[in-house]
Design a protein around this nucleic acid. Sequence first.
DNA 1: CGAATGATACCCT
DNA 2: GGGTATCATTCGG
Length: 225
Amino acid sequence: MSSGHGSVVVTATPAEPASDVTSTRRLPPRDFFARPTVEVARELLGMIVSRATADGLTAGRIVETEAYAGPADLASHARAGATRRTAPMFGPVGHAYVYLVYGMHECLNVVARADGEAAGAVLLRAIEPLAGIELMRRRRGRPNDAAARLGAGPARLCQALAVTRAHDGHDLLAGSELWLSAGPQPPSPTQIASGPRIGVGYAGEDWSRRPWRFWLAGHPSVSRR
DNA sequence: CGAATGATACCCT
DNA sequence: GGGTATCATTCGG
């Protein structure tokens, strides 16, 4: 189990080989996303994000997410209500919300909410690369980075998968350029860790302390340790 | 630790 | 309309 990460204990099971990931496409049902955003965030762990371009296929297993609960959640972009930017969060579940942060980085979210809730979204914070690793390295312009780190962060994930604001509003349960699919098996509850969301101190203690960040414990592709 | 870099939201004329 | 504070990050020093 030691893989050059010193004392890190990897409790998450390794993902299936890339060939298995790409041979079948098991889309989650739309209803999966029509549930409380925090539940969806937890259960997105272990699912696969795939991206096909003329350059080839890239795909990764989701190992870190964060839930954003809607207009009442002061950490969420939805706190300002529906604007041109946040419109996708108020639209159909299972679609993408992609935005630019810090003037240079894109972030990919999946719209989710239960009936009666509003404008929830799950930020995909990290993937374990499964397919197209060399293509990811090229896109990132970092030929020497370890494969496990290519998608270790929300902006890295978008760069590795070539996800841009052109995908804002894109249906992640349809089409053949960017889609979600079920993983081989969901992680066991004991593999899932949770803690406060990253970089949302501006939201005040009430919201920034909530443990709405989920990750696979000890997984080397998680954005922070 | 701090710079990079631009869209956005919000407040003011 | 226009000015500006802020930002769901990353990389290099």
